[in-house]
């Protein structure tokens, strides 16, 4: 479904991704792991074209997306959930979700406000509250709900467990499992190995913008030196 082929991405002069390649099959949940600064966020942004890779190719369902503006990529069915909870703080929950709304798409379930409120009951209670009145966890859920309103076929989740209370992390994991049941493809970047293990089928480990490991968690467990080298201290 997603084919990333030797992309090199930069912020100004700083090279963040270095000949990175991987592919994601439809229906898979894949976690991109790595320490902070490893290039996880940039990887997702490079798929979404929020960062345009200087060289290399990113294909989504066979279509080249490098060079397309992000809105076109979103319309193809890629849903992007940013880190740092970039919600529109002046807008209410309902309005935030309206911004993300896109027409239904073939082959994936159609999400409505009501369906999403079932998934995120906390948001339902506060639907007319402005974004800035929400807690960190609620904001994080809102970013996911907002993107789901676009009925994506593939979800890019940037560090969904970061900076939120453990009980919310648990909820978040359950939510991702729910989304997974809807046959959605999910790519999530994570620092938290245990969280990733809980929700993902496969792990891709990057460090210094390069891929260091690509395989199942069982395979990862068989190579403790990889964990040691790229994830732990």
């Amino acid at each position: 479904m997603i084919e990333v082929d030797s992309i090199n991405s930069f912020y100004g002069k700083a090279q963040i991704l270095n000949d990175l390649s991987f592919s994601i099959a439809a229906g898979e949940v894949v976690s991109i792991l790595g320490r902070n600064g490893a290039g996880k966020t940039t990887t997702l942004k490079s798929i979404m074209q929020l960062v345009r890779p200087r060289t290399g190719s990113v294909k989504f369902n066979g279509t080249e997306v490098v060079g397309s503006p992000p809105y076109k990529v979103a319309k193809m069915g890629l849903g992007y959930v940013p880190e740092e909870r970039r919600i529109f703080t002046d807008l209410t929950i309902l309005e935030n979700m309206e911004v993300g709304r896109q027409p239904a798409r073939e082959g994936v379930p159609e999400w409505s406000v009501d369906l999403l409120f079932e998934l995120f009951p906390n948001l339902s209670e506060r639907r007319n509250n402005r974004g800035k009145a929400l807690s960190g966890g609620e904001q994080q859920m809102l970013t996911i709900a907002r993107t789901m309103m676009g009925n994506p076929t593939c979800l890019l989740l940037d560090e969904p467990s970061e900076g939120i209370a453990p009980v919310i992390v648990e909820q978040m994991a359950e939510t991702i499992m729910q989304i997974k049941k809807q046959r959605l493809t999910v790519v999530l970047s994570e620092q938290n190995l245990h969280f990733a293990r809980l929700v993902a089928d496969r792990a891709i480990i990057i460090e210094g913008g390069q891929k260091r490991f690509d395989g199942t968690f069982a395979e990862l467990d068989a190579q403790p030196e990889i964990q040691e080298k790229y994830l732990s201290v």
């Binding site: 467990s161 453990p166 245990h194």
Partner: peptide, 9 residues
């Protein structure tokens, strides 16, 4: 801290 964990997991 670096690998996650805690009671939950």
């Amino acid at each position: 801290v670096y690998l996650g964990g805690g009671n939950l997991f």
